[in-house]
């Protein structure tokens, strides 16, 4: 099953072909990158298939494998799922939107 298409965002990426093709065991989520996370990944959104029951933390680990440069900000960032506060242990559901928000400092 193809990952859900994010709508008309810059840097849209859909080629994360997951090994796990079992529909019942994986869910699709969109990951939104802000600020420095956008520089480091070169994308503002990616669509991702993750095992059912994955937490924000384990999804973050997956993202670190895909984008090792994200290591730079992973100790200083906010996570939000569907615009609500999330921490590493918050679980993701199918269709969720995980936002990765490092602080901006410019002014």
């Amino acid at each position: 099953m193809a990952a859900e298409e994010p709508k008309s965002e810059k840097g849209y990426d859909d080629d994360d072909d997951d090994d796990d093709d079992d529909e019942t065991k994986s869910v699709s989520v969109n990951v939104l990158f802000f600020a420095r996370a956008r520089d480091l990944t070169g994308k503002s959104v990616v669509s991702l298939k993750i095992p059912c029951g994955s937490s924000a933390g384990s999804t973050m680990e997956r993202l670190l494998c895909m984008f090792p440069r994200l290591q730079e900000i992973c100790k200083s960032m906010l996570l939000a799922i569907n615009e609500e506060y999330a921490d590493e242990s918050t679980l993701l559901k199918h269709g969720d939107e995980l936002a990765i928000i490092p602080p901006l400092s410019g002014g």
Binding site: R36, E72, K75, S76, P102, P103, S105, G106, G107
Partner: peptide, 20 residues
């Protein structure tokens, strides 16, 4: 509370480097 650990220098871009 939000950012107990400061981001590394490389993550703190300035307008004079990155533009705005």
């Amino acid at each position: 509370c939000l950012f107990p650990t400061p981001p590394p220098t490389s993550a703190c871009q300035r307008c004079s480097d990155s533009g705005v």
